[in-house]
Design a protein around this nucleic acid. Structure first.
Length: 423
RNA sequence: GGAGAGGUGGAUGAGUGGCUGAAAUCAACGGUUUGCUAAACCGUCGUACGAGUAACAUUGUACCAAGGGUUCGAAUCCCUUCCUCUCCGCCA
């Protein structure tokens, strides 16, 4: 959620930035400022009258104490005359706050200055490409055939148990998944991230806190009886640890990593793009999250990008890094880098990580702040990234490392898995 | 799921209708003292939204789990929800 102050200070700049995100209702900016003026006006009025009521009430208390009953009764009558006004103003205040909030929450985060202009994924800026694209042997298979051939993942039975997009990992296929998660977590904790294992369902407040609601309502699985949402990413529970928290300066930066399954309805997805492990309703992911001082957030974003890059390098995968254009960025992000690895058998790039700086967008809504050395309360910035999403890494590792009689493992995973080859 | 007891500021904890935005203690911070540390002493020490200011100062309102209600007045009384603890039930 943006701060009204930002809109107030420079409405034209805000509108220009919203346009980069292809936001369709620039008029909301002026509306919100006007609503905020109105809100202030009502509050001032309310406070004034309420102040009179409070003073009179105290006076009544004193008079009662002194036994001056009649005078007290007179004052009671006076206070009663304010009552309808107070009630009315209070209702107006609550209503105007609600309207303001509802409008404000519709505005996406403002993009950073270096965000490329553009609408579609093709307009993302390729900032780096590295690693060698392997040349596969004759008859190399895409991962959806490899997993069948070696009996690693059983989609049909997963569909029988639950529905399509709920893979059933099996044998070495299941172990490989576990090993990847463990390796990623170890890699992250070695870089100073504290490991968390969060709840996999969250309440409404948490879903709002990180911006999934109201923007992505319908993308999350919703357990209606208890009004809980299955998490679409560990970002939601983990970032919400710090909802309504005022941190001390020395506690920053907060660096967290968490493994979790992720549940996404992915309504509307179909076709070749979503074959096999490319897009599923339940997948596993290891996430990294940081809370930092605002002045440092872009420096930290670069560090996080470098961290994910090092992880991909250790897996010996060919990758590229994209700076997302305004149209391809998420609602909450100010700047996002996507990592894609090349899947040699599918001959296409697969997104495996997304690293973003949310600036104060999430933390403002969550009321997470910190106290600096002079004891002033200041905003914090939040960032997160996948490190890494498992299924597509899984897919590209088995595709890129396949040979005629099996599947090799990259060096870093061999000791984790206990052998040189997966198959 | 049943029965009971609770939820107060960073922590402990007082507070059953007005003198309580909240005692006291501890922690934290600033200072005095001190060769250093410690101790002692003095002071500061919640948040949000307003008014005000160049900025401070100052000042109003709201907040004692959350939401509603009673009252001139609510941390305190009533209702609902959530959470914690104890016992029972169920159960990995």
């Amino acid at each position: 959620m943006l701060q009204v102050q930002v809109l107030r200070n420079n409405p034209e700049l805000v509108k220009a930035k919203l346009a980069i995100k292809h936001f369709k209702q620039p008029e909301l900016v002026d509306e919100i400022v006007a609503l905020d003026d109105e809100r202030k006006r009502i509050q001032t009025e309310y406070d004034t009258i309420q102040s009179k009521v409070n003073a009179a009430s105290k006076e009544i208390g004193k008079l009662m104490g002194q036994g001056k009953k009649e005078e007290a009764e007179l004052m009671k009558a006076e206070v009663a005359s304010y009552k309808s006004q107070v009630t009315l103003l209070n209702e107006q205040m609550i209503a105007s706050e609600a309207v303001l909030h509802d409008k404000l929450i519709v505005l996406p985060n403002l993009p950073a200055d270096i965000v490329p202009i553009g609408k579609t994924p093709e307009e993302n800026l390729n900032v780096k490409q590295s690693g060698t694209i392997p040349v596969l042997h004759e008859g190399a298979l895409p991962h959806w055939d490899l997993i069948k051939k070696y009996d690693l993942v059983d989609f049909e039975t997963g569909a029988k148990i639950t529905g399509s997009g709920f893979p059933l990992y099996k044998g070495k296929g299941a172990k490989f998944q576990r090993v990847l998660a463990q390796y990623f977590l170890d890699f992250n904790t070695a870089a100073g991230y504290t490991e968390y294992l969060p709840p996999f369902m969250v309440n409404k407040d948490s879903a709002y806190g990180t911006g999934q609601l109201p923007d992505k309502d319908g993308q999350m699985y919703h357990a209606t009886e208890d009004d809980f949402y299955l998490i679409p990413t560990a970002e939601v529970p983990v970032t919400n640890i710090f909802r309504d928290v005022i941190l001390k300066e020395e506690e920053l930066p907060v660096k967290m990593t968490a493994y979790s399954p992720c549940f996404r309805r992915e309504a509307g997805s179909f076709g070749k793009e979503v074959r096999g492990l490319n897009r599923v309703h339940q997948f596993e992911k290891v996430e990294i999250i940081q809370l930092v001082e605002p002045e440092k957030s872009y420096e930290v974003l670069d560090q996080m990008v470098a961290h994910v890059e090092a992880l991909l390098q250790s897996l010996e995968l060919p990758y590229r890094i994209l700076r997302l254009c305004g149209g391809d960025m998420s609602f909450t992000s100010a700047l996002t880098y996507d990592f894609e690895v090349f899947s040699a058998a599918q001959e296409r790039w697969l997104e495996v990580s997304s690293v973003s700086n949310f600036e104060g967008f999430q933390t403002n809504r969550m009321k997470c702040r910190y106290k600096d050395s002079t004891n002033k309360t200041k905003p914090v910035h939040s960032l997160n990234g996948s490190s890494l999403a498992l299924p597509r890494i899984y897919a590209s590792l088995i595709e890129n490392n396949q040979y005629d009689g099996g599947i090799k493992l990259p060096k870093v995973l061999q000791s984790y898995f206990g052998s040189e080859n997966l198959i």
